[in-house]
Design a protein around this nucleic acid. Structure first.
Lengths: 201, 201
DNA sequence: GTCTATAATTTGATAGAC
DNA sequence: GTCTATCAAATTATAGAC
């Protein structure tokens, strides 16, 4: 048997790392940070308890990486939508359909939503995570700007912008959670139902 | 000092029991079932660790009682609204304003929502609780009936009833969670914003 | 009724064999 | 790279003093 090259080793290491993060996402999202045991994660990704500590320094570090990715990806998605050269309401439509479609077809997408929700509610979390969570308002802030823009363009209904976005974004998050809770019995609402909250009459 | 009467003792016992449940609701809702330590609850209600076991047989039993109350109160509220002798959309309006008002002014109300959400998502829970949770679809089912009634009366927009209620109820739950996450920075959306999802045009 | 002390388990994390 | 064995700390639940 020829020895593995350094490159091959690096690839294996990378894959296993992702494998751990994937299993951890599933477990953390369903049980929350504190309730998740390291051995639960190990079992979920079919690896030994000890091996996780070869890839990550602690349970904290695994969770932190997941929260970091959740914040990063949702922020990027919203900032990208904002940059689309189109009328405000078209941006809102695009975001809504994109998010709902992701939540429906990609389980991880819904899990990331759930992790963010849990993290925002829980009072006991490592400091590092608290710091990352402070950037978690980016998606909400982007929505505030787009909705305000839509009101100027008369495509979004009049009313308090903060209230409109709170209702809209709460619904998005609520749907992601419902999708996980109901599993196969879940029926995804059409984007138009949500858009009625914002669309000008 | 005169000895306490049996009646006085019973009152104290009842009050302390409620005190425990009140503290437990706050802690469980913020940390989830498994992450909540019995000593956390004891600290939250200013009682000793051991005393909780005088009132409840286990951590399970405390949580079970809270879930039972959450299911019961939300079911009762919705069933009561359904029984109001009024057009369907007026029932929906009443429910929406009532729930949002409660979530805003009564912290416990929002905590109950959060417990229900967590419980519906988590995969590892005592069997007893799983059984209670099966009744948790009552509010959703009531909404299904009222919305269908509203469509017949042409006061609710056309469309798949399941989808409409999923969007509406997800938004309600999402708002309750957001209210807890944002605390004093939260601005409650006006009920009309949510009602636009359902109102006929 | 309420507390403190403690027993039995379980957990996060480490060490060392392969 | 991956596993098993093990430690120190924390947790649920109980026992017994007041």
């Amino acid at each position: 048997m020829t020895p593995r090259s350094a490159q091959q080793n690096a690839m294996i290491k990378d894959e296993t790392r992702e494998q751990i993060l994937s299993g951890a996402l599933r477990v953390f999202s369903h049980r929350g940070y504190a309730a998740t045991r390291v051995s639960d994660i190990a079992k979920a990704c079919g690896l030994s308890h000890g091996l996780l500590y070869y890839y990550f320094q602690s349970k904290d570090e695994i969770f932190t990486e997941l929260v970091r990715r959740a914040v990063e990806s949702s922020s990027n998605a919203l900032l990208m939508a904002e940059a689309i050269p189109a009328p405000a309401f078209q941006k809102i439509e695009w975001i809504t359909r994109e998010v709902l479609s992701n939540v429906m077809t990609d389980a991880d997408s819904a899990y990331y939503f759930l992790i963010m929700t849990q993290t925002s509610v829980t009072d006991v979390l490592p400091d590092k995570i608290q710091a990352i969570m402070k950037q978690s308002s980016v998606p909400f802030d982007v929505m505030l700007r787009i909705v305000a823009e839509g009101q100027i363009q008369d495509s979004v209904v009049a009313g308090d912008v903060q209230q409109l976005v709170t209702a809209y974004w709460s619904a998005i998050q609520g749907i992601a959670i419902y999708r996980i809770a109901f599993k196969d019995n879940f029926q995804m609402p059409d984007a138009d139902i949500l858009l009625r909250m914002l669309r000008a009459v």
